[in-house]
Design a protein around this nucleic acid. Structure first.
Lengths: 197, 197
DNA sequence: CCTACCGATCGGTAGG
DNA sequence: CCTACCGATCGGTAGG
């Protein structure tokens, strides 16, 4: 039940457009990247892009929802799983660190460029993000209530975790003198170490 | 020894241009902000901006170097001061938190938009930033060597601190249900708590 | 500080 | 997938 060859080719080209765009959006930002540069990086004319995608905004949408959907799934799985709040928060730190390190371009675009989503998409994403943060805060609060965690403001703890992961964009761009595993362990040690009772 | 009135007026207008631009650059990014919008927000024509500033890039330069100079000064004062590594790192967390909360627009533009500096300025800023991080890492390393701090990778600790401060941009934009003082105390508790022995 | 305007570039469409 | 092109907008200058 594979797709006709032309359709497969088409969607492969679309995937190429989106991944190339992710690279560019991360480097120069969404507004700093032009459709002509994107086309040139792929080796076609700007007009030809529109056989595969509808608009510049649609590309940003697909990049962002691709990553954000996977984050949401992971959080829901974790909520439903067994384990202490501490274990769940640690798992989330590891998950987000892995996302940033392995899906670096898309993840960076999500955290840095979501402001440039169009009005409707922007509102949806902002609401989704807020829900996500609230759920993480609830995990932290539960850990505090059970005495697993120090009584810090969940809001600050969650913001620090997500922001610290975001900051790993720097590491990814640098001449890497440390391994991904080292980074992940130190992220956990610092961010969990600061809240564990 | 005050300046002639016209000169004072001119530099006041320049300051207005720069502070208005900082607001816009933070909201829409450097590339997403146009000189025409900037002029309109001030109430003049776009062409008139150029009586006070040389270029769009110059505005970004002035915003960024203004904040970064003050950060550099503070770090140098702290290096020369008495106190344990732990005390110095805590002071730095408090200082950066204060900078983000009180000079929100400029600080946000520095951490988010420095990529859009022109080549020469970009190289200078990147080098300056690298030096800054290295100095902070040295403080952390010293604390580890003296047994004040846990043996974490200084690189990760410093990145987490600076990134967490950067993340406070969210708090500043939100309906603030917590005070700046609470935020600062929780930043210290979480980030210092994670490294203190 | 304005009017008038420059060349360049933008996202995107028509038509093949 | 291309050529040809649209109207809009960009940063910036000339000249007053």
């Amino acid at each position: 039940m594979s797709l006709p060859v032309t359709k497969r080719k088409k969607s492969a080209k679309k995937a190429l457009i989106i991944s190339t765009a992710a690279k560019m959006f991360r480097e120069k930002g969404f507004t700093g990247s032009s459709m002509r540069d994107l086309a040139e990086n792929i080796g076609i004319e700007a007009a030809s892009l529109y056989n595969h995608i509808e608009s510049k905004s649609q590309i940003l949408n697909e990049i962002i929802w691709g990553v954000s959907h996977d984050c949401k799934l992971q959080l829901e799985n974790l909520e439903a799983a067994n384990g202490t709040s501490l274990q769940k928060i640690e798992a989330l730190i590891r998950f987000h660190t892995q996302m940033m390190l392995t899906r670096f371009e898309e993840y960076s675009v999500m955290v840095n460029e979501w402001i440039h989503l169009e009005t409707g998409q922007l509102a949806t994403f902002a609401a989704e993000r807020r829900r996500y943060v609230k759920k993480m805060e609830a995990m932290v609060q539960e850990g505090i209530d059970k005495g697993e965690l120090k009584p810090l403001m969940p809001y600050v703890v969650v913001l620090n975790i997500l922001s610290s992961v975001r900051g790993l964009e720097f590491w990814h761009k640098s001449a890497k003198s440390h391994t991904a595993v080292e980074i992940e362990e130190n992220m956990v040690a610092h961010l969990i170490g600061g809240i564990k009772n």
